[in-house]
Amino acid sequence: MTDFANLLRVLATGQVDFILVGGVAATIHGSARLTQDIDIVYSRQAMNLDSLVQALKPLNPYLRDAPSGLPFHWETRTLEQGLNFTLTTTSGALDLLGEIIGGGGYEDLLPHTITVTAFDLELRCLDLESLIRVKRAAGRPKDFEAIAELEAILNQPP
């Protein structure tokens, strides 16, 4: 069952420091494109890794596309030893990104965020120009249409 509102709630109420990037951030800025997962850049501070582990534990996070039975332990040590994790949870797909191309990590991105209120939560989201920049930096042909749309949003009158 996909329940992205719950996923956002779990992260925000779990005191996890994260920034929405990717398709959900694009939606917040007005994109009409459909996205199937939530992409977040998370702070790599030790305390935040603990918060992330505790917050997501009830949602049974597991590596997406990994063969079932693969030993995967959702714990702080696992996060310490990796950087980016594509997860499936009982509330939907979640990509945890320690860094993104062209943008860096949580602390680098923080000055380039906006705060939006949704579902009674304060959510940090990459600002529109920065979202365009990181998507351009990634250089993936599949993003060209999305970038064009984001630039069209940027050019809309206020």
Binding site: V24, S31, V116, A118, C125, E149, A152
Partner: peptide, 19 residues
């Protein structure tokens, strides 16, 4: 036209529409 429609919504309404 879809963008203009979305820009008239609040961020929460945009997320709800996506969901």
């Amino acid at each position: 036209s879809l963008i203009r429609q979305n820009l008239q919504l609040t961020p929460q309404q945009r997320l709800e529409k996506l969901f």
